[in-house]
Nucleic acid binder design. Structure first.
Length: 272
DNA sequence: ACTGGATCCTGACTGC
DNA sequence: TGCAGTCAGGATCCAG
């Protein structure tokens, strides 16, 4: 479920409430995730103070002096901050981090595609993060980068920009949206797109992600920020989930196709 | 080296 | 009301 804007919205929501706070206790109710929750996480994290909360791609990183908690929300994960009184955990509330003073950071993930891992090493060198591509909103990501990397690649451009080794954070919603913004057909072979068009695509990826972050992310069904508020970018989606409705640019009917087991939405008239 | 497909898991929704 | 089938915002592993 969460792509870069939703993870960034989550980061911004929880960071002010947990930065500089000491962990009083950690409760793990369900260890079965994409990988098992790190054994001993409870003892490692308890007593530590969260120094900062960062994001790398779709990963959230809670840094402490002793190590780092790596969180991933998978398809269905979300985080909630609870204040004071005890709110009973639901069936998919797998992890609570209880801070001194009573604030609780709670991870919910019904499908358990997410992760909660502890590392004492540099998390950016962790096996899961080490081969990630550049941040789309950071330096090192532009049209020239995409153009160079894509030479000789026959895979569809939509699949290409959703590959975390190419660029992080672009998931199924924002891939469709960025390609529409750039006027590029999602099935076009990545290696057969010009440098000029990749400049436009890189700019569109940034534009779409920034706009989504400003709106607090996209809530399709259950995404919410740390305080339980939904995101409002769904109202701004040009193509995603809009099969049959008119393209906001040209009015043609939006179409949907399946690509690598994922739905792709596009405008057959203005995307070539 | 690349590529597409299957897969992990639960819940919501559709149609019979 | 129940049940089967389909789909969902991610990422990895596998065979070809």
């Amino acid at each position: 479920m969460p792509e870069l804007p939703e993870v960034e919205t989550t980061r911004r929501g929880i960071e002010p409430h947990v930065r500089g706070r000491r962990v009083a206790a950690v409760r793990v109710r369900e260890r079965r995730m994409r990988q098992p929750v790190t054994p001993g996480l409870e003892g490692e994290l308890a007593g530590q103070t969260v120094e900062r909360v960062e994001r790398r791609g779709k990963y959230l990183l809670l840094y402490t002096a002793a190590g780092t908690l790596i969180l991933h929300l998978g398809m269905s994960g979300s985080m909630r901050l609870l204040q004071g009184g005890e709110v009973p955990p639901g069936p998919h509330d797998h992890l609570d981090i209880v801070f001194e003073g009573g604030t609780v950071l709670r991870l919910r993930d019904p499908r358990r595609f997410g992760l909660a891992l502890w590392t004492r090493e540099d998390p950016l060198r962790h096996a899961l993060l080490g081969s990630l591509g550049p941040e789309p909103l950071g330096a090192g990501f532009d049209g020239a980068y995409l153009h160079t990397l894509s030479r000789g690649r026959r895979t569809a451009v939509k699949t290409f920009i959703m590959d975390g080794r190419v660029v992080v954070g672009v998931g199924n919603i924002y891939a469709s949206e960025a390609l529409h913004c750039a006027g590029i057909h999602p099935l076009r072979a990545a290696g057969r797109i010009s440098a000029e068009r990749y400049e436009r695509l890189a700019a569109c990826i940034r534009k779409v992600l920034r706009a989504a972050i400003r709106q607090g992310g996209t809530t399709l069904r259950d995404f919410s920020d740390g305080d339980g508020r939904p995101g409002y970018f769904a109202q701004r989606l040009a193509v995603y989930g809009r099969e049959g409705l008119p393209c906001p640019t040209c009015g043609a009917a939006i179409r949907c196709l399946r690509q690598a087991q994922r739905s792709t939405y596009f405008c057959p008239a203005c995307q070539r």
